[in-house]
């Protein structure tokens, strides 16, 4: 079978510092996106464990699989989790969730936890959509704009490119920065047409890194347009899978003139973290 260059690394993690047995309130957030699914468990508002994997064709199955994987070898059972919030594109198809909350709200809330309460603008670059969110110091959404109609500027578009160029998706960012000077961006917006354009550039003898740079530059332009429509206020953070692509992040920072905040937590789990935090807040307010 041919190598799958688009395939990004699935992962799971358990905190070495938190023990669920000591927790008073255990909540979870399950973010079923169109491309990836994440489950996060939080103990008293602290990140305890998570899993991130590719979404299958069936949302309920995907939500169960990712939750089971997150809980694997922790000794924690789903029944012990007080409140589960479903979020993301498939949020209404999480059978064990008590409530569904939109991914916009969850990403803003999650970014507030991950990057601190100084975050005012969040760019969530997901698998099949891209959202620019303005939020307050509590992580509450003030305004947002999203593109969910077109693959340009989304993770799925990047996957298509990884396959076209035979470059593993997690190497794209690095490779795109390995150019003596920034080439002009790919001119087609549509991913389908950009693919033809990239093929033509390769035929003209452009090295792969230069083509990758031209595509990353076009993608950064695309999302910067979205950000400029909503207005970027500092601090600024990027969440979602594309936040792991340094080629895109650096270009967005250069074009905006604003550096995004850095964070050690996996950027793909921001929505699920937000969900788990909303669960805790609902319990504390007696609304669970």
């Amino acid at each position: 079978m041919a190598e799958e260059f688009w395939r990004w690394t699935e992962s799971r993690w358990t905190s070495p510092e938190v023990d669920w047995k000591d927790a008073k309130i255990i909540t979870a957030g399950v973010d079923v996106g169109s491309v990836s699914s994440q489950a996060v468990v939080m103990c008293d508002g602290e990140l305890y464990c998570y899993a991130s994997m590719r979404t299958g064709s069936d949302s309920p199955d995907s939500s169960r699989n990712v939750m089971n994987w997150a809980l694997q070898e922790t000794g924690l059972e789903l029944a012990k989790i007080k409140y589960v919030i479903g979020t993301g594109y498939g949020r209404v198809n999480v059978p064990f969730a008590s409530r569904a909350i939109t991914e916009i709200a969850c990403h803003a809330r999650g970014a507030n936890f991950m990057y601190g309460n100084s975050v005012r603008t969040v760019l969530d670059m997901g698998g099949q959509d891209c959202k620019a969110i303005r939020c307050d110091d509590k992580g509450k959404v003030v305004q947002f704009l999203m593109n969910d109609k077109c693959a340009a500027g989304t993770g799925r578009g990047m996957e298509v490119f990884a396959d076209l160029l035979n470059v593993p998706i997690n190497k794209i960012g690095e490779l795109s920065l390995d150019v003596p000077e920034e080439p002009p961006p790919v001119s087609s917006t549509c991913v389908v047409f950009a693919k033809s354009e990239a093929s033509a550039l390769l035929r003209q003898g452009w090295p792969k890194n230069k083509v990758v740079a031209a595509y990353c530059s076009a993608m950064a332009n695309r999302v910067v347009t979205l950000l400029e429509r909503i207005g970027v206020e500092k601090d600024f953070a990027i969440t979602g899978g594309i936040a792991k692509n340094i080629g895109i992040v650096k270009r967005i920072a250069d074009k905006l003139g604003i550096k995004p905040l850095k964070c050690d937590i996996d950027t793909q789990i921001a929505g699920a973290i937000g969900g788990a935090l909303f669960g805790k807040a609902l319990i504390e307010k007696g609304k669970a």
């Binding site: 077109c150 693959a151 578009g157 549509c190 389908v192």
Partner: peptide, 9 residues
């Protein structure tokens, strides 16, 4: 899906 890429999926 409207987008060709999304429609493929």
């Amino acid at each position: 899906a409207q987008c060709t890429v999304f429609a493929e999926s």
